[in-house]
Simulated scan of single mutants.
Amino acid sequence: MIVNCRSEELILSKDRAIYWKSKALLIISDLHIGKSAHFRKNGIPVPNLVGLTDFQRLNILIKEFNPGTLVITGDMFHNNINSDAIAFQEWRSKYPHLKIILVKGNHDDLKKEDYEAFGIEVYTKELLIPPFRFIHDKPHEIDAYYNISGHLHPGVVIYGKARQRLKFPCFYFGAEGAIMPAFSVFTGLKILTPETGDRFYVITPDKVIPIIQ
């Protein structure tokens, strides 16, 4: 799905990413590396395949778009270094020329030297590339920049003819900003209430479907 936002062409992928073609920029949010290992450590059985699936989807996106830079709008890691982070290090070694930029989220608590070891450029508050501001959670004050954030794990409810109630992750585009879907499959959804003029792009297993209020 191709959308026009502030006169820029953005490609919305069903693999929960945005590709900004003119900047060769691949954008994702809420990867939560280490979350599944954190749950296993606390006695909750979560398969190792959860993290591997996320990395495999990243492989597909990089092969499809060949980006120069990967931007992650927060919650790349889920607090601490663990076995999932080691798996990321192995994945990272396959793409030594890929620039990775992290705008820190509330779960990104690694040490400075850990990010450096992974070859990750870190921004504490925001990354400004006109006309966009990349930030983890949408700011309270509005200015000339269009905000692209994550954090909320947005979703929508679709009702079928037989009263089925299905939940899907989505991209949200409002007047002042967009909210990215959580990239990790191991996350919940926050169902957003549409307002007039909002654009939702529902992510199904096969494609991205627009819903305009």
Rank of each mutant, 00 (worst) to 15 (best):
Y115K: 12
G105D: 03
T124A: 15
T53H: 15
A162K: 15
I211L: 15
M1Y: 11
L31T: 14
T53I: 08
I211G: 04
E113W: 08
G74N: 01
G51M: 12
A117V: 00
E64Y: 06
H32A: 04
G188W: 02
G105N: 06
K21S: 12
L102S: 03
F39P: 08
L102Q: 00
V46R: 08
E9Y: 08
K167H: 12
L102Y: 02
F65W: 14
L31E: 01
S149G: 10
F88T: 00
I100P: 13
K111E: 09
E176M: 11
K14D: 07
Q213T: 12
S22D: 10
L110W: 09
R133G: 02
P194M: 08
D198L: 12
I158C: 09
Y145N: 11
K161N: 06
F55N: 07
F88I: 00
I86V: 15
I2M: 11
P67L: 08
I203D: 01
P210W: 04
P139H: 07
K99H: 10
F168M: 09
I209T: 11
P154S: 10
D109E: 14
I44P: 13
G68M: 12
S184T: 14
R165N: 06
D206N: 15
I142C: 08
I60C: 11
H151V: 00
P210L: 06
L61A: 04
G160I: 02
R6V: 04
I203Y: 05
I28W: 00
C170V: 03
G155T: 01
Y95Q: 08
K35L: 11
R92T: 01
K35E: 04
D137M: 10
T124H: 15
V71Y: 06
H136C: 03
A17M: 04
V122H: 07
H38Y: 11
L10N: 04
I33K: 12
T187L: 06
F134R: 04
A182S: 10
E121V: 13
D54C: 09
L166A: 09
A175H: 13
K94I: 03
L12M: 10
G43A: 10
P45R: 10
L52D: 13
K35T: 02
N4A: 10
K63F: 03
Y159L: 14
A178N: 10
A37D: 05
I72W: 03
H151Y: 01
D109L: 15
F39N: 09
F55I: 02
G105A: 02
D143K: 15
N147F: 06
H153N: 03
G119P: 13
G155S: 10
I11D: 01
K41N: 14
E141L: 13
I2Q: 14
I142G: 05
D198I: 05
A85Q: 14
V3F: 09
F88D: 01
K63I: 00
M76I: 03
H136P: 13
Q89G: 10
Y115F: 14
L26E: 04
L25T: 09
L189F: 06
L152I: 13
A182T: 03
N66C: 07
L70A: 06
L25D: 08
W91M: 05
M76P: 05
N80G: 08
D30F: 04
N82F: 05
E9M: 14
D137L: 11
F134H: 02
Y95V: 05
E8P: 09
L128T: 08
K99C: 06
F200N: 02
S13V: 05
A182Y: 04
P130S: 13
G74A: 07
Y172C: 02
I120N: 00
L52F: 08
